[in-house]
Design a protein around this nucleic acid. Structure first.
Lengths: 247, 247
DNA sequence: GGCGATTTGTGATGTTTGTCATATTTATCA
DNA sequence: TGATAAATATGACAAACATCACAAATCGCC
């Protein structure tokens, strides 16, 4: 793709993991890319390993080269809430870094995952040099914030069944389908789905069984397929009360 | 405060509304302040008037000179969720601007409010000139995002009574007390409190009455006092189940 | 392959909470 | 000030959902 200059293998790796997927780093100059390359390191995590841990201070940011990650925040009684999901090309760990806070959520690999770690100092240096990069992160944060606000409103107002439908659609949108199959390309436990939807694990199990009975989804273990997207979207969008008060 | 140069009255106003309250604009040079001054305009809103409206495109940002503002997002069935509250010195309207989106929430004055409007072009220009300003907004957004994530988790996991206690404490922290009194310095309807807590208006009314009976708060109309902060904090932090299953 | 641990599934149960109806109080404005 | 609208309050009730208990299936690992 980039024919103007031959990169060494190491450099090319960094370009891979920062630029190829993500428009965020499009704006970097060669010098800036080289700065990042010099200090970046590539790390791999097996499924269910922690990439960073809620309560620790951030040391840098992580660009996901390939794999899937959940950002899981612990509630007061220890129950987890998944506040964001990430996939190849996404960056994680930037929020805490930007306000010098402890991580508010743990990042856990949902799959074997490889990431590119950029140390705090180098990243912040490049951020201060490149106005466009700063604006790209501003846009990213502002988008995250809108999503969070929408999610807050749904959690406060919408019933579990509707949130479940929305979550299944969102999972398919983010992770797509396993190629050659109709199953959503992410493997989540019932508990993890519950932590996305914001409900009890048992309720999630019952609700998935219900949707399966209705022919809207099908599943075997953690492989979930959407069989009737129109019906699922209907549940997700327009909430039909499942009961009517007598009149 | 700023003795280095005499400002005209108009200039001084702008400095007042952008710099005096808020550290966000500390980093501006004189030239940058002058740019903002030249194009800013001051607007006033009476209680319950809209400053901007969900669904419209932003034309600039608003710095609150004095007053109080709610940012209220409409749920699917039209029920409102208050996603942020703002007071003098805060800035509003920046989120939508940063990602070129429609406003995701309406800004409504909770009190007679005066704001300083800075048009999009000028603001974005200054933002691109001043790296420190960009980083300040990055920090602001990152902080907003953490708050939103915490709130999401609470909405998903904590009972209404606990969220109500948290909300009352947050209101006192943000708006303080009416001077010479013990009442929280903001006037909200029961419906607005419900839209903060994420519950039905009737539930809010009942819960406030309950807290009043317990001597934890007192109120007359919209004037609410916290009578027993320790007890309220206990409700807010450590959730004690109000029932026990038989064993 | 088999054993223990984890995950998934199911039933019973009752709390929490929202909804509707309606009264009462408070605010608004001619 | 009085009429009218809006906000607050209260009761009845049922749905939504969590919790606990325990059974069945699946997974991980030696």
């Amino acid at each position: 793709m980039n024919k103007q200059k031959r990169f060494s293998d190491a450099e090319f790796d960094a370009v891979e993991c920062s630029v190829s997927h993500q428009s965020l780093f499009d704006c970097l100059t060669k010098d800036e890319i080289n700065m990042l390359d010099e200090f970046k390191s590539c790390l791999t995590f097996k499924k269910s390993q922690q990439i960073f841990n809620e309560g620790n201070y951030p040391l840098g940011i992580y660009c996901i080269d390939h794999g899937k990650v959940k950002l899981s925040h612990s509630g007061e009684d220890g129950k987890m809430q998944i506040v964001r999901l990430a996939t190849a090309g996404n960056i994680i760990g930037y929020r805490a870094l930007f306000c010098n806070e402890k991580y508010n959520a743990s990042a856990i690999a949902l799959d074997d995952t490889s990431v590119c770690f950029i140390p705090k100092d180098v990243f912040m240096k490049v951020l201060s040099l490149n106005t466009q990069l700063a604006q790209n992160f501003i846009r990213l944060l502002a988008t995250d914030l809108r999503k969070a606000e929408d999610h807050m409103t749904e959690l406060a107002q919408r019933p579990v069944r509707e949130r479940m439908a929305k979550a299944l659609i969102a999972l398919r949108d983010l992770y797509g389908l396993v190629k050659g199959e109709t199953t959503i390309n992410v493997s989540l436990s019932r508990e993890e789905i519950a932590d996305i939807v914001g409900t009890a694990t048992e309720t999630t199990i019952r609700l998935l069984a219900e949707l399966k009975n209705e022919g809207i989804i099908s599943f075997s273990g953690k492989k979930i397929s959407i069989e009737n997207m129109a019906a699922l979207e209907k549940i997700a969008h327009c909430y039909q009360p499942s009961y009517q008060y007598s009149r």
